[in-house]
Design a protein around this nucleic acid. Structure first.
Lengths: 198, 198, 198, 198
DNA sequence: GATGAATGAGTTTTCATTCAT
DNA sequence: CATGAATGAAAACTCATTCAT
């Protein structure tokens, strides 16, 4: 009998072995040959596991995002106040561990902006729904705990957009400022307005 | 006597004649041949006016953005309240006249995210500085007019990011909602907090 | 005790299970993977039974042709006159039962015209000899029966070519006419000349 | 001003420069690189003049066939009797000058049998109509000249098929006989039946 | 006996850019 | 000034075949 391979696992393995490659060189100038070489497989094998170059970017993004989400959930739940939770929520845009993920995300967004396909649009929608709900829930909890005023709920979606806009501007600009500081500054400024005065 | 061609004007003419082409088909699959044909010039001539394909996208963006800015300045100055001015500021993301510009901008951002060059980064920085200052000034004026509380100034940059994040999410998602409504809702919610109670 | 597989039978089974596949899609774009899948075997197994893709076309052609010949012999022997026998001989090119065989034959001829190998050439020669002799015998019998004039024997080979030329033209042309009618018309016209007047 | 090239002529030139290549090696294993090299042009230039590999085969076939037809018309018109005209008509299948054309035709037919497209089907139809009419006219003239009996007209189409069938069988078989002799033998045998006895 | 995972050579095609006229 | 013919590097992708298990 022939070898039976865990296709899903091998797909992951190939994807993960190339993360560095994608992060460093960018996707545009990367060839399948290079990718296959890095993964230690033949070009044909690459196509047994991925439909095309975009597919592996997608896979990498999914894997890293999944891992990221798990860790994030824990961190947020451990934060003491709503203010801190929100800051933690936006931590993705500045922390060091997610640097790779951010890079991949950037490349992915680039593709998604110019050549979107249904899969990508769906993925984007899913991401938006998942993460904006997450933020909304944090706010809602804060309201229920009497930490922040009820009107703050209306700001949650806009606050979510803030994060993406920030990310987007830091990605395309070299105005290097401290992104973490900017986040904290904005969140603090906002919370000064919406926190229940004791 | 040789015909003296206004190089700058011809550059503009070529760029403008191709706006539709770029808006419809996207930049990715557009060839220089098509662009030259559309502009009614030879391929060689194209290279007399533009360094490469990206350069014309850049030119188009600059022309449209310049036009846009002029009109915007007027509109904002005519708005009655700070609240309205801010709404007017974000009008770019939803109004019908700027549809083409938004499309070009999207394509441009896509390039800028994956293959930025110095020129682009500078442009992005300039844009960021110009427009975020603009918003800041609006806020500042509002504060000076006693329309809104002084603390609002700290929110201006974050508010600016909100706009980009919104644009970004609507561009990549098919969650079709009314973008104008979302803007107004957020601005209103925020202004309810920062407007000086009379 | 090991299972003893009838190699010859299995070869036939594999070939026959793929007839539809070859008829529908054409050979050009058919992959061994598809063939193996359709036959319910592994790709490796395919190579245990066939040297390459051409080999299975060959096998299919042989099987179908063999079946066809048996039936044909019977039908011809039952025909009442030489005229009818000849019509029956050419029936292959128009009847419905042999549609699949004709399709396969067409594909095979295509290969044979551009990439002939010894095996194919031999096969073609054998076919030519078998079938043209067959036709010749029919004519000869007719002569001996005093149905047709002795000179007709000289026409038998040319008559045989007529069939192939007809097939060839109907295969490459869309001039859809009734192929059966054309056959009968020609055979009748010719027999009017060569039949012994009573 | 840039050079203006006679596109049609250059297309012909490229096509003709490769005739030998196609005749010798067959089309299947020929790469565009080889073709371009032989024609003394770049690969890209090839695609400026031909859509793909098939297109040049088509062009070659058309050129050679056109030339062939001209010469043929003259020869046939000079033949003394209908019998000779018909033999001359089938001369294409055996004479030495048309060897190249036959080879190309063979390759073309191979493509046409397995991957026909509308253009090919139309071409085949046109060829069939043109040449079968030609033969028919020869016969008709013979009838009008009282050389052959009126019933012979019904045989013209079938006679045309004879030629293709002959060609087809000689192309796929190695039964090397003298194709010219076969043609003459059949035509003579047939004419013995249809010529008006004096 | 049977399998299917792995391979990589080989080919088509595109298109930005150049430069002779 | 303007042109468009010519180029060829570069990349994606296919698929027959092998062979370890």
């Amino acid at each position: 009998m022939a070898i039976i391979v865990d296709k899903v696992q091998k797909r992951r393995d190939i994807a993960l072995s190339c993360v560095k490659l994608f992060v460093q060189g960018g996707i545009g100038h990367l060839t399948i040959s290079e990718v296959a070489k890095k993964a230690g497989i033949g070009k044909g094998t690459f196509y047994d596991y991925f439909k095309n170059k975009e597919a592996i970017v997608f896979e990498i993004l999914n894997i890293l995002l999944e891992e990221h989400s798990k860790g994030k959930e824990l961190k947020i739940s451990q934060a003491s106040s709503t203010r801190e939770k929100v800051k933690m929520f936006f931590d993705f845009y500045s922390n060091n561990e997610d640097k790779e993920l951010r890079q991949i995300y950037k490349e992915y967004i680039s593709i998604s902006l110019s050549n979107p396909n249904k899969e990508m649009v769906d993925f984007q929608s899913k991401c938006f729904n998942t993460y904006s709900s997450w933020l909304k829930n944090i706010i809602q909890d804060g309201i229920e705990n009497k930490e922040i005023i009820p009107e703050a709920l209306n700001l949650s979606k806009g606050l979510y957009y803030f994060g993406d806009g920030l990310f987007f501007n830091f990605s395309t600009t070299n105005v290097i400022g401290d992104i973490k500081k900017e986040i904290h500054f904005y969140v603090d400024s906002l919370f000064d307005l919406i926190e229940v005065k004791k």
